[in-house]
Every structure is written in C-alpha cells, then in structure tokens.
Write a protein that binds this DNA or RNA. Sequence first.
DNA 1: TCAGCAATTGCGGCGGGGCT
DNA 2: AGCCCCGCCGCAATTGCTGA
Length: 349
Amino acid sequence: VDLDTAREELKEFIPHVKNISDTSIRKMAGRDLARFKQFKKQGMAVKFGRFTRKENDQIRKNVEEFLSISGIDSAEKLLFTSRYPEDKETINRLKAKHQFCEKISEGIPRPWRLIYYRARKMFDPNNYKGRYTKEEKEQLKKYQAMHGNDWKKISELMSRSNLSVAMKFSEIKSAINYGPWTKEEIQKLKHAVKEVMRKKLEMEDGSSPSSLEQSNRDLWVDREKLCQHLPWTEIETKVGSRYWRQCKQKWNSILVKKMSKGQTLHRWIKGVQNKITLIKRLYEMKVEDANEVNWEELGDAIGDVPTTYLQVQFYRLKVSFVPSWQKKTFSEIMDFLYQYKLPELEEKL
DNA sequence: TCAGCAATTGCGGCGGGGCT
DNA sequence: AGCCCCGCCGCAATTGCTGA
C-alpha cells in the first residue's frame, strides 16, 4: 500500500489526517478507506466525537445480528474471545468466516477500530460498575504495588475493566490535595497555564517579537481561545498538588467567572443577548444529539467566546429552566428553550 | 432549607505503538 | 492485518458545600 496516496485519499474524510502517524494511516487504509467511499455515495459524512444514541443502537443491533448469524452464544465470547481459551479457535474461525469486522461496523461512518472499541466497552460486564469505594481504592493501590501496571491481571482481581483500573490508578497514585483550592495553588495554576500558553504561541506563529509582546499583553483578555487543548498533564506537574483534571476544571471555572462577572448594566445586557443568540443558534442547528454541536464554531459566531463559557451557559439554561431535562433529548431541550425561555429573555431587553 | 456554585469522578474518543 | 494496551485529553453527571 502506498502510504502517501492513502493519506491523500483519506484527507477527504479526515481533515486532520496530516498529524496522524504512518502506522495509524496504514491501519485505516486497508478497510476504512473503501467503507468511507461507500458512505460518501450514500451521502453520509465520516463522524467524530461521541457516539450518538442511534449509533449505539446500531452497534447493539450489529452485535445481535452477528451472534445469530455465526451461532456464537454470547457477546462476551464475541468481543472478549481471549477470555475463553478453549473456544478461541472456533470463535475466531466463525468471526473470519462471517466477516466480523465488516458486520460490526455496518451502517456507522467511522473507522471500524473505533466502533469495535466502543462495542467492547458497551458489552464488557466488568464495565459500568459505579464509584470506587475507599476499600477498592486501597485495594487498587496494593495490587498495583504487587503487580505493577499489569492492568489485565488487576482488572481480573477487582472485577473492574482494565480501562477503569488503569485510569483510576492514575488518579489516585499520588497524594492529591482534595478540597478547596488555596490561593497559592490558584497562583501556581495561573502561572502554569500562562507558561504553556506562551510556549504554544511561540510554536504557532513564527513568533516575531512584536506579536509575541502583543500576545503577552492580551493573554488574559482577548486570548481565551488559546485555552483550548492545553497540555494538562504538563500543567499537573507544574502545579504539583492536583490531578490534571482538577486543574482543568478549576481553570475553566476561572475563565467562566471572568466572562460572566462584572455586573454593570452593559455586561448584563450583553449576557442576555448572548443567551438569546445561543438559544437561537442551537435551535436552528436542528441537531439531535448534543455532541453534534460544534461549540468552537458557535463561539466564533457569537463573538470570540471560549467554548467552556458557552457550554456552561447552555448547561445553566438547561438545568434551571427545562423540567426533567435528564430524560429529554437535545432537540427536545432546545425546542423547550426556544419556545418558552427565548420569549422571556427577549422581553427583558 | 435549598438554590447555585465548587469539586469530584465515571465514562468517552482518539492516536501511538507493540505483539502475533 | 488484526488485536490489544495505554497515555492523554474531553464531556457531563453526581456529590459536596455554602450562604442567604
């Protein structure tokens, strides 16, 4: 397979293909390129991000269908074949015979490997086990000390999925400073973010000194957009006392506070206007699933506001005005906001 | 007591890379 | 080629806390 041509052809379906390594391209060139072309004929675009409810249902359907075609008697045997050493050969033969890879990914315009992973998460009986108890956390630390990063073994010992134990351990491995943030910690966090943003700036533009100075000056006012896609693990080590996700959440809350603070009349009007625009735009998108929303694009359209701000605004609108929003789909929520909340907001202006 | 905000965390996607 | 593990980052729901 010619890598460069494959890359070129994939570009049509995956815009960020440039940054993907050769090994991954090779993995996709084989099966997915042909699939993507098929989907294009049917007018379906390749999708990214969270799987929608429809796609999850499709996966369930595909698995069910494959089980009945092949005669394999459980989803666990199909998706976790290595857990059944005595049946392994038979199962693998059946999978090959009935074209498992094609069938599992049928009707879903994504790389088949990602669909396969999604299916494994959905059907792993050790997944979805809720919060870790204190005892479990201690146990996990002990097991890791005994077996190292052998997550497969540890996951068997704890009857949690190996993804779950690996991730949980990375959270609890170091003593994390829980509770409210101290002033010093916040300072450290701001400093760390500033530092990585400066580094990012230098990398991005060719960094003429004047533009760099300009950027430094505006770092806290105009450049909130730079706050997307920061290297949070790096920031974690700089802060020292918090896990990276704590850092990220804290930073986001600082940003949102910055954006919605300042109770002057002008600011208040602007806030209401932003809410109105937000509802209108979201409603007009007519998307079924919240994860189809391109928040970054929306931020640009509304006027250079960071996505975290928009998401928090949307979340607040949702939880404070839409009854039983948990049970509603995104489009239902937007219908409600558009119909009932929008007139009220427009009244206020 | 309860709304609203802060903090925590379960689960998710994606890409690299090793092994067979 | 297929399979699996892992690091890294992201989303959003739950839980905890506080002040009015």
